[in-house]
Computed example of a mutant assay.
Amino acid sequence: MPEERGPRELTEHERGEVLRTYMPQGRITAVPVRRPDRLVLLDQVARAFEPGVRYTGAEVNAVLCRFSADLVVLRRSLVDEGFMEQDRTHYWRCGGTVDL
């Protein structure tokens, strides 16, 4: 079985292919089964959140609804995969790539 590569190990071309396949017009059409592809998708969504800013659940939902109608799965995936953290009242971005 071939070894799966993480999102940072994919070339820009490969990242682009994943985004064109699963987010053809900026909205998620399906969640990839392959974890590296799913991480590329979640990384793209995480870029919509500013590092260091704390967001309420309502604010997170407002951002996520631009990407998908399934807010619960998307929010949970961002937390589970380490792109965001949460406490009882807020979420904040803690992972993913940052444009410089």
Rank of each mutant, 00 (worst) to 15 (best):
M1Q: 12
E4H: 10
E4T: 08
E4F: 10
R5H: 07
G6C: 04
P7F: 02
P7N: 05
E9I: 04
E9M: 12
E9Y: 08
L10M: 14
T11S: 09
E12W: 09
H13P: 13
H13W: 14
E14F: 03
G16W: 13
G16P: 04
E17W: 15
E17L: 11
V18T: 00
V18C: 06
L19I: 04
L19R: 05
R20I: 07
T21Q: 13
P24A: 13
Q25K: 15
Q25A: 15
T29W: 10
V31R: 14
V31F: 15
V31P: 00
V31E: 15
P32F: 07
V33A: 09
R34Q: 10
R35F: 09
R35K: 12
P36C: 01
R38S: 00
R38A: 01
L39T: 01
V40D: 01
L41R: 06
L42R: 02
D43W: 00
D43A: 01
V45L: 12
A46N: 05
R47N: 01
R47P: 03
A48L: 15
F49D: 03
F49N: 01
E50H: 13
P51D: 03
P51S: 08
G52D: 07
G52W: 05
V53T: 11
R54K: 07
Y55L: 09
Y55E: 13
G57V: 11
A58D: 10
V60P: 02
N61F: 13
A62K: 11
V63F: 07
F67Q: 07
F67Y: 11
S68C: 09
S68L: 08
A69G: 12
A69V: 14
A69N: 15
L71V: 14
L71F: 02
V72F: 14
V73S: 15
L74P: 02
R75T: 07
R75N: 09
L78K: 03
V79Y: 00
D80S: 14
E81M: 11
E81N: 07
E81G: 02
F83Q: 01
M84R: 06
E85P: 02
Q86C: 11
D87W: 00
D87E: 03
H90W: 09
Y91K: 06
W92F: 01
R93K: 05
C94T: 12
G96T: 02
V98L: 09
D99I: 15
